[in-house]
Design a protein around this nucleic acid. Structure first.
Length: 230
DNA sequence: ACATTAAATTCGA
DNA sequence: TCGAATTTAATGT
């Protein structure tokens, strides 16, 4: 697979590549490949072997499981600019979730062996992965705490705020192209309640609602809202 | 669950 | 190629 300019740019923009040596960077660029997915396409099946570290170059992806009854639970939305899947790679286990493109997306893949090699050979790369795991850990701690406050709007605030977690996701664009139904799945709420919650947040001046998307106005305010006792 | 409205697609000139 | 008409998807109640 040829090295697209797009892919090279994406790699050099990623925080973890900044301190790699020329040799290391060259190997990453040689081993990494890119694929396009149209909206709704399955990127990897639940239970498939975890052969790659996955980067979202463009578009938006979700991570979810589907139970026997066909009910979908979404764990996380992954916006462009982030890398994920290191958990399954490190454990050398099948992926416990499926990955689906929500929009037309460009996805980069770094092979398992290259990933391990970087961990062994680049201190700054290992550090990046540790920080990222730690951030996810913090995310789940926050999530558990957040769930205790049964407030729908707080849940939605939390999920939205975490989508813009700068450690996990190098996002710049504060407009989120997600339908309310999708936001509902992310926060584990019905579309109805999501709608009410979004209006509550909009009334509080934290975001504005647009057709098919939501624009974040006050990220810090969303975080506060997610943790406020009420 | 239903009615409304935005957006995407089709069709005819 | 443009715009009206139709169909599909998202939203509000």
């Amino acid at each position: 697979m040829s090295l697209s300019v797009e892919l090279q740019c994406f790699i050099s923009r990623s925080a973890w590549s900044a301190k790699l040596t020329q040799e290391q960077l060259a190997r990453v660029q040689k081993d990494t490949f890119q694929r396009s997915y149209s909206a709704g396409a399955l990127i990897c099946h639940r239970g498939a072997p975890a052969d790659h570290w996955i980067g979202v170059i463009e578009g938006l992806v979700k991570v979810d499981t589907v139970s026997k009854g066909g009910r979908a639970t979404t764990f996380a939305g992954v916006p462009a600019g982030s890398w994920f899947g290191e958990g399954a790679l490190l454990k050398d286990e099948p992926r416990p979730y499926s990955v689906v493109a929500l929009r037309d997306s460009e996805i980069g893949f770094i092979p398992h062996s290259t990933f391990e090699w970087l961990l062994d050979n680049s201190h700054s790369f290992s550090r990046f992965v540790i920080d990222q795991l730690n951030a996810r850990c913090g995310y789940y701690v926050g999530l558990v705490g957040n769930r205790r406050l049964q407030k729908a709007s707080a849940r939605v605030a939390f999920c939205l705020a975490e989508l813009f977690n700068p450690q996990l996701f190098g996002v710049t664009d504060l407009t989120l192209g997600l339908s309310q139904e999708e936001i509902g799945r992310l926060s584990g709420l019905s579309r109805q309640n999501t709608n009410r919650a979004l209006h509550e947040l909009a009334d509080a001046g934290l975001l504005t609602i647009e057709y098919g998307s939501v624009r974040i106005l006050d990220l810090a305010g969303l975080r506060d809202f997610a943790h406020a006792e009420d």
